[in-house]
């Protein structure tokens, strides 16, 4: 792909790609053989979204989250979600300071650039919903005081498939707040063998040094905002989302917020590809990770074991791409 040379965006994109390349190399030194997952995680970071990593235990969900967090020089907090976790354990609490005779706010782990929520579906719904405000509005309100969160702010949550024991499925509202859901999948045998060699001695995570500063990421996010989305492509995004709403196999389609997330993520992906405009291919590639986790299949579709992922893939497969600028 030829490197774009149009205006400042183009030049900025060169730098963006460079930094993004460094970050993904850093992460991939920890997570073997999962370039797609790594790239998607980066895309979500640049789109200022939140990432949900769903898979069975032990495939490296937490490792990916931590590697991403650690490769960027920013504050990282990790919360292990358990059934007895309280909302204040996440947002922070006002405690009485006896010396100063006043309540003072002790920020919770949410006050970080990257919040790694491990096994988020093991927490009670009450605690899960405490994340809602933080994720969408990037602010926390405790005892009537609103605290803004620092940019970039990204929640990387991992969860086990809902069939596993001792889990509370995330409510639809909360699932809708995650820009994308990815699943890690088992590594292929060669990657697993290499992992044995590398992880045999010491955790590679320990050796990971940050390759980008939080300020860099903020600049990158600004650059992503300037990626061009042609009206035809916007319409195409709307068409894709509308199709999920009308699809006979789906009980709940994607929300307008999903459209927003889809276009935002497509911008980030275009920027990562060093392109200053979005093409339908970006939307096609991101449709499944961005849309599938928000959809509810009908009872018939469930009986037929048609997953929302399949439905979205089918929609993308059949919807004609826009062939003219509108």
């Amino acid at each position: 792909m030829a490197i774009s040379t149009h205006g400042d965006v183009g030049r900025g994109l060169d730098g963006l790609a460079q930094i993004a390349g460094k970050i993904s190399t850093a992460i991939e030194s920890v997570i073997e053989g999962k370039p797609r997952a790594v790239r998607l995680a980066l895309t979500v970071l640049l789109a200022e979204g939140h990432l949900l990593i769903e898979d069975v235990p032990g495939v490296g969900k937490t490792m990916l989250a931590k590697a991403l967090a650690r490769s960027v020089d920013c504050t990282v907090r990790r919360v292990q979600f358990t059934p007895d976790l309280l909302p204040s354990d996440i947002t922070g609490v006002s405690a009485y300071n006896q010396d100063r005779r006043e309540f003072e706010f002790k920020p919770g782990p949410v006050f970080a650039n990257i919040l790694v929520g491990d096994e988020i579906n093991r927490a009670s719904p009450k605690t899960q919903s405490a994340l809602l405000e933080c994720m969408e509005e990037r602010q926390v309100t405790v005892d009537g005081t609103t605290y803004h969160l620092e940019r970039p702010f990204m929640v990387v949550a991992t969860q086990n498939p809902v069939e596993m024991e001792g889990t509370y499925p995330l409510p639809e509202a909360q699932r809708d707040r995650f820009t994308a859901r990815i699943s890690m999948g088992y590594p292929d045998p060669a990657a697993e063998l290499e992992m044995l060699d590398v992880h045999g001695q010491s955790s590679p995570l320990d050796r990971l040094v940050p390759v980008a500063a939080a300020a860099d990421v903020r600049i990158l996010i600004e650059l992503v905002h300037r990626v061009h989305v042609a009206p035809a492509v916007r319409q195409y995004a709307i068409d894709v989302v509308t199709a999920t709403r009308n699809h006979p196999a789906l009980r709940l389609g994607a929300s307008p917020r999903a459209t927003l997330h889809l276009v935002r993520a497509a911008r980030a992906k275009a920027a990562l590809d060093e392109r200053d405009y979005v093409v339908p291919d970006d939307l096609q590639e991101l449709a499944v990770p961005v849309l599938a986790h928000r959809l509810l299949p009908t009872a018939e579709a469930q009986v037929e074991r048609r997953l929302p992922e399949q439905v979205v893939a089918e929609i993308v497969d059949r919807l004609p791409v826009p062939d003219r600028r509108r």
Binding site: H6, H228, A230, A232, Y277, P280, R324
Partner: peptide, 12 residues
């Protein structure tokens, strides 16, 4: 393909 893609979706 590139020319068509840019004609359709790119600003220029």
């Amino acid at each position: 393909a590139m020319a068509e893609e840019r004609a359709r979706y790119a600003p220029q």
